[in-house]
Design a protein around this nucleic acid. Structure first.
Lengths: 111, 111
DNA sequence: AAAAGTGGTAACTAAATGGTAACTAAAGGC
DNA sequence: GCCTTTAGTTACCATTTAGTTACCACTTTT
């Protein structure tokens, strides 16, 4: 299809941009889980029981690469790893907060 | 870690809830595209050029089923269909707006 | 000895998502 | 006759993402 001189919205779409960072099935929940606390791997897994450890690891790695979370590894036995939000991750909190609000108003008290 | 009477976050997680409605790869962009205008199928497709017509159709159907958008079909030849946000769809605008804001601040003017 | 505790990895399978091509309808243009 | 327009549908295949199961490394506790 030929675009007759019309500029597509997508090219400059900020929503597309954020979705590339937090668009995964689990990423918003993981960030939401870390919104106010530093948490260990096992803690996150316990709070999101239906995610597998493999997928959780993958998603955490991607979030780390995108500079939204910080991973700190302590070389102890047994091992300990702590995850927390970076400044950039914290800057997402208005977005997560609006999602939370909407969910509370439109889903939670509807059933 | 033993959950000492602690309920998992997920069970009552409002973020999980909203993600079931708008968690798809394209849904936030489609809603964002309809945020202030009623649009025809072809218009939406033109504004989101990288989505195929088939997938756009599927996503629109799902949004319609979830009562976020309204589909009005005019039985003309050639066919005409108009999409717009329902009240529930409009209620998502703070979420989309925060996503847009974050995208503008953190991605668009960063390159 | 063996299990518990921690944060993973590897190999494999399943599910979700995305894509193309060909087809439909009725009227108008060449 | 054939092409164009519009908003799809159908069939089929490819790709991407997610899930399952088993296993490791290392120390302390049972």
């Amino acid at each position: 299809m030929v675009t007759k001189g019309k500029i597509s919205e997508e090219v400059k779409c900020p929503v597309t941009g954020i979705l590339q960072l937090i668009g995964g099935k689990w990423k918003p929940i993981i960030l939401y889980c870390l919104r106010s606390e530093t948490r260990r791997f096992g803690e996150i897994a316990a709070r999101i029981p239906s995610i597998s450890r493999k997928v959780l690891t993958e998603q955490l790695r991607e979030l780390e690469q995108d500079n939204l979370i910080l991973r700190v590894q302590f070389n102890e036995i047994p091992p300990r790893v702590e995850y927390s939000l970076t400044a950039m991750g914290k800057s997402l909190s208005p977005v997560l907060h609006e999602m939370e609000k909407w969910g509370l108003e439109n889903i939670m008290n509807k059933k």
